[in-house]
Design a protein around this nucleic acid. Sequence first.
RNA 1: GUGAGUGUAGCUCAGCGGUUAGAGCGCCAGGCUGUGGCCCUGGAGGCCGGGGGUUCGAAUCCCCUCACUCACCCCA
Length: 443
Amino acid sequence: MAVGIRRPRGTADILPPETARWQRAEAVAREVCRLYGYEEIRLPTFEHTELFHRGVGDTSDIVEKETYTFVDRGGRSLTLRPEGTAGVVRAYLENGLGSRPQPVKLYYLSLSAFRYENPQAGRLREHHQFGVEALGSDDPRLDAEVIALGADFLRRAGVRETGLALNSIGCPVCRPAYREALVAYFAPLAGKLCADCQRRLQRNPLRLLDCKEDRELALAAPRALDYLCADCREHFEGVTRALAALGREFAIDPTLVRGIDYYTRTVFEFTHGALGAQASLFGGGRYDGLAEAIGGPPVPGVGFGLGMERLLQAVAAETGPGGEERAPEARLDVFVAALGAGREPAFRLLARLRELGLVADTDYLGRSLKAQLRAAGREGARFVAIVGEAEAEVGQVTLKAMDAGGAQWQVAFADAPAALRAALAGGRAEAQAGAPRDGEVEA
RNA sequence: GUGAGUGUAGCUCAGCGGUUAGAGCGCCAGGCUGUGGCCCUGGAGGCCGGGGGUUCGAAUCCCCUCACUCACCCCA
């Protein structure tokens, strides 16, 4: 209200203490990736528009009506990435990662993705994804590994109430037949289909299964699994066997197709009950044709993308309202309170404490001692170092414990850092033992 | 792109035709010429989202617009 310019629709400012929750989730993601042997990749935020048209697909809703596309000053058509996979595959090809040991296993973290959508719960115009891509192998065990990695991440991040839906949508060999079967099934029912579905019948019949208008129709439709070629059937069985070997539970959902065109064979999705209409926590699958589609040699791949905002929403829902509020405060080892002539030496002390690795801060508002102590308490300081007129005169520092006892003693200015370090390391008992007895004052 | 709901202090909200628009929390200060938490007192902070209209008079009623929320579509 106070400012004239506000953030664009569908974007979010992420402030402390919310950023701390992001950092915790990100730390978990890095750790899980490390265990599975995935390394981080960072990519440009925008790519040539062509990449997404050929990769994600012209007939996908994402490219058809949700991209942020612009022409730069050099006349190039560029697009803010709507997802992460196409860029990863492009980078794999462009940087010759095919000549590294295969498979190449990569992850990206809090990668921003842009889609021109109407915002609602769990949906933004800019959101952030944690994703994983394993390139260079079509081994079904790799599909299972990617799924297991995602599941482990969810569990460690604090999400338990989640379910895995799995399906296979075949490959270029078997999909045409399935496509025809779908059209044959839906065509006589065209009159009953919604406007969008009328169009899908022509352009992208698989997506008819996605329609929420009439679940009965979709559930009764021919199933992709029944039309798989021998290779795809074997692959799918391999995935389910591998998941069983890993002890992972899943439910086969014949209507699961997903909205991005590059998927082949395996598709999967984790859903969570606390996300409103946007139940999908993360989704992914195999994309063996993507590298070729964007002009490279055939490179099989499998991966997923996970929405960080939705993840944190799910974590918050499971932690409970109280737990979410109780974000750990930024603890301070020492608050340096300064008054009058003490301000110069106090500022030097502050720098010295930080050099020693203590978390230290001071007052920058010229406040009264009372107010500075209040600030110290608010920031969770364990000790306060007071350097006022009196201390400055005799070259000493008053140290005060901020616990219930509030013990207080004085040390020479030069000894203050060591005394504070000892007090912090040993707790209050040692702190007092190390302090001159006659210097102690009861609060 | 479509539909519904909501816009009042930094936050959560009250006020819903009638003097200078309020509370709680938070922030700052005082109560104690230098001692935190609890308490008390005070202060700062609002073009009542924006524009137009109705009216003697609009935060309040009407219209438009923008934003937010939820939902459709689709996705993370």
